[in-house]
């Protein structure tokens, strides 16, 4: 299936303002106790790497989605569209949360909304597909709400091939977060080596950054676990 769309996430530009989280909640009427996306802070760890990295996480709309594989409903309550977007079919969902546990990126949550059969349904980022047909010049544009809101253009959204080509042109490296072979669609850029020093140490001993990669960190909602206050 052709993966048409993807996010391009440049953590170097992120200022940790969380406008993306709030914009999604407004656009998609997400309730107050959960969120479809998240900005997690990785680090610092003064022993290994004094820097901090913000990482925007949402549903990766994987090539081989674990959520679909895990769904026990006949004919599945989640589908992967022609354009690669993974979408929940609310009326088929029975709220068993198998997909929630299966997703390595923590992208799904059980929501308080009920479908017409009375089951609570799961909810996740939809790449704001409902906006795709809108006029790009209208307020809010035709791209995902988080992308449109980010005050420092840390997020972009578009055709995956085009984004990859741009990344290559600009000579940036891509972070590999595909530890489970799901084929996540989003392109998360590796931040370039930062000479971040902690003045407590000898001022010559600055650290260059290597991405402190721990797959467990890359989950929507990780910010709640790492920093319970959010």
């Amino acid at each position: 299936m052709a993966q048409k769309y993807a996010f391009l996430i440049d953590g170097e530009r992120c200022i940790f303002c969380r406008a993306c989280v709030v914009a999604c909640k407004l656009e998609n009427h997400v309730g107050s106790q959960w969120q479809r996306n998240d900005v997690i802070l990785i680090g610092p760890d003064q022993g290994k790497n004094p820097a901090m990295y913000p990482v925007f996480m949402n549903c990766q709309h994987c090539e081989r989605p674990a959520c679909i594989a895990a769904c026990p409903v006949e004919n599945k309550a989640i589908e992967k569209r022609e354009d690669g977007v993974v979408i929940i079919i609310p009326d088929k969902c029975v709220g068993d949360e198998m997909c929630v546990y299966a997703c390595a990126y923590g992208a799904l949550r059980l929501s308080p909304h009920k479908n017409k059969h009375g089951y609570h349904v799961v909810d996740k980022c939809t790449y704001c597909v409902h906006k795709l047909d809108r006029d790009p010049d209208a307020p809010g544009g035709n791209r995902p709400a988080c992308v449109m809101t980010c005050p420092n253009r840390a997020l972009d959204f578009g055709l995956r091939d085009e984004l990859l080509a741009r990344v290559k042109r600009e000579g940036r490296d891509i972070l590999d977060i595909d530890k489970f072979g799901m084929g996540p669609s989003n392109i998360i850029l590796k931040p370039r080596p930062v000479r971040m020093a902690n003045a407590l140490h000898d001022s010559d001993a600055t650290y260059s950054s290597e991405w402190p990669f721990d797959i467990k960190a890359f989950r929507v909602g990780a910010s709640e676990e790492l920093n319970p206050a959010g």
Binding site: C17, R18, A19, V21, V22, A23, K25, L26, P136, D137, P139, G140, G141, R143, V147, M148, T149, C150, P151, N152, R153, D156, F157
Partner: peptide
């Protein structure tokens, strides 16, 4: 630098909602 191609000015979470 908000939005894409400057089509929507930036605001932080507080301003947005």
């Amino acid at each position: 630098a908000g939005g894409v191609e400057g089509k929507q000015g930036g605001v932080c979470a507080k301003g947005r909602i």
